[in-house]
């Protein structure tokens, strides 16, 4: 690079900063986004199995009930909960609200804690539903 000799100032990278919740929500939004892309491919397999026939569907639903299947579904549900809540937070910020530092920090915590609460809620309802069926 011709510019290397000029020693331009660089913006400090992540490891320079003390960890704070706003960084966590920002990084997690991208991470959960990537997880959800992979998870969405599972929906494709589910629908293809459902369209293919009872045998394929029972293979698929046996997988979702296995240990690994449960782990994937649980992680996926949390990723969805976080990306959903934090996504709404981003939409609110896009509209120009919530930029005061205190508000920004507080809404970050709402995303983190809210995602755990929503995940717990989804699984409580799912288990109650599974128990009654």
């Amino acid at each position: 690079m011709a510019n290397r000799s000029r020693e331009r100032p660089l913006s400090p990278h992540l490891q320079v900063y003390r960890w704070q919740v706003q960084m966590v929500t920002s990084i997690l939004h991208r991470t959960t986004g990537v997880i959800l892309v992979a998870g969405s491919l599972l929906i494709v397999f589910a629908l293809l199995a459902l369209a293919a026939g009872p045998q394929e569907w029972s293979d698929f639903s046996r997988f979702t009930r296995s240990g690994l299947g449960f782990l994937i579904l649980f992680g996926w549900s949390w990723a969805l909960a976080f990306h959903l809540i934090n996504g709404i937070r981003h939409l609110v910020q896009d509209a120009g609200w919530g930029y005061k530092v205190e508000t920004f920090i507080r809404s970050s915590w709402v995303s983190v804690i809210g995602s755990l609460v929503l995940t717990a809620l989804i699984w409580l309802i799912a288990m109650a539903q599974g128990g009654s069926a």
Partner: peptide, 9 residues
């Protein structure tokens, strides 16, 4: 693929 699966169903 997934939309086609839904349509088939």
């Amino acid at each position: 693929a997934s939309v086609l699966a839904v349509i088939r169903i």
